[in-house]
Nucleic acid binder design. Structure first.
Lengths: 230, 230
DNA sequence: GTTTGTGAACCGTTTCACAGCA
DNA sequence: TGCTGTGAAACGGTTCACAAAC
């Protein structure tokens, strides 16, 4: 430990698996809040997120929240704490690049808006698409991207273009000054360290699934396996 | 029983992080194959997938492929080996449930078809949607799901419905006999152990991104980093 | 009784380093 | 020389177990 006496702040580093689970806890908390529950136990959050209860307590410890022994966590304040920790306590401005099938689906995606995530503008390289409206936003040509990002202080770029152009779009978004990228193209994009990029890769997800199905199918899986191939 | 050296099979268990990287290697291999390259080094695959070169060699060792010291791996045969290992060497039949924005985008998704992933039927709970066609497939009412899965020997179910109905759809898919589920609803679904379910959660991805952006912003970050990534 | 917070053990993955081969 | 294959060490995350708090 660093020698700070821990006071108020929650400046702890949140690991990636923890971050993912925090999202899941938040969903459960929202459900509970809607149904009027006042407190939750780590066990219940664990069930909802598929995590062990000790794991839940560790995770919540990381973001600096405390529970009441014998009672659990206060639903409302824990929700606020998680939102603050992952940054969804405020709204974010984004641009969407790519007005194809996926782009249109994202523009209409309910959960984004509910989370304070606003798609301020849509761009597409195809001139025949520019000018049309999707979800009430007019599609603009790529030339307008950089100025739009600067003028409207856009923070997030969403890539929903074919894999061939993903890297180029990423470069333009970074050059325009976005602070983070959400990439829906099945291609890893290279970005500077200061700009985090998270990929949502349908194809990779499908491949993971198919692998698991195959593994389930064939081997009843020899229970223990040490050293030698059997 | 154990103790004998049995050489042939490649029935090794593939861990989840390895599975994900195999997908990425495969993409790079396809690019290389298209551009006529005959061999690759572990280093080059590592750069493409964001992994260390020793990591690449370990991964490829797991699926039983061997490289040539001083030369690398043969692009074509390595591609085949990975495809066989993750199960995309053959085609898979799937049904899509949910003909909303995301469902329609998925039905049209190029990479699925390219990977031998065939969406054999589409279902929707909304009777006013049933009967319409998306991507050339007629949308059917939910009643028809179970029989379709059985009759057409469907292996994979894709969930693209609002979170409120995700669990119910998952239950029906499992009851109908699918072997795996790809879930695009932002809600974890509970399924029996024998049926793997992989979630693709846009909202969670967004939350991870926002967290990273926040962390970059505030903490100058103790910076302990090597390697490069530009 | 219940449930939290946390050090310590555990486990799988990643990285290192180097022998061996082309 | 260039590159693979692989033990061994390092790392980080998860689980365990239990004392403390309600």
């Amino acid at each position: 430990m660093g020698g700070y006496t821990r006071v108020v702040a929650v400046r702890a580093r949140v690991s990636s698996p923890t971050a993912h689970r925090l999202s899941l806890y938040l969903r459960e908390l929202e459900r509970l809040a809607a149904s009027g529950r006042a407190t939750v136990s780590s066990r219940q959050l664990g069930v909802a997120a598929g995590a062990a209860e000790a794991q839940v307590r560790k995770d919540l410890g990381v973001i600096g929240t405390a529970g009441l022994p014998g009672v659990g966590y206060v639903v409302e304040s824990l929700g606020d704490a998680i939102r603050a920790a992952i940054g969804v306590h405020r709204s974010w401005r984004a641009v969407l690049v790519g007005a194809g099938n996926i782009g249109r689906a994202l523009a209409a995606y309910r959960s984004f808006r509910e989370e304070g995530f606003e798609i301020a503008a849509v761009f597409d390289a195809d001139p025949s698409v520019a000018g049309r409206r999707i979800s009430g936003t007019k599609v603009q040509p790529m030339d307008a991207l950089a100025e739009c990002v600067r003028r409207q202080e856009i923070e997030i770029g969403i890539i929903a273009v074919p894999p061939e152009s993903a890297q180029e779009v990423a470069d333009r978004l970074v050059a325009a000054g976005v602070q983070g990228i959400l990439n829906f193209a099945p291609r890893r994009v290279r970005v500077p360290d200061r700009v985090p990029a998270i990929g949502v890769d349908f194809r990779a997800a499908l491949e993971r699934l198919v692998l698991e199905v195959s593994q389930r199918d064939e081997g009843p899986v020899p229970a223990r396996r040490r050293g030698r191939s059997a």
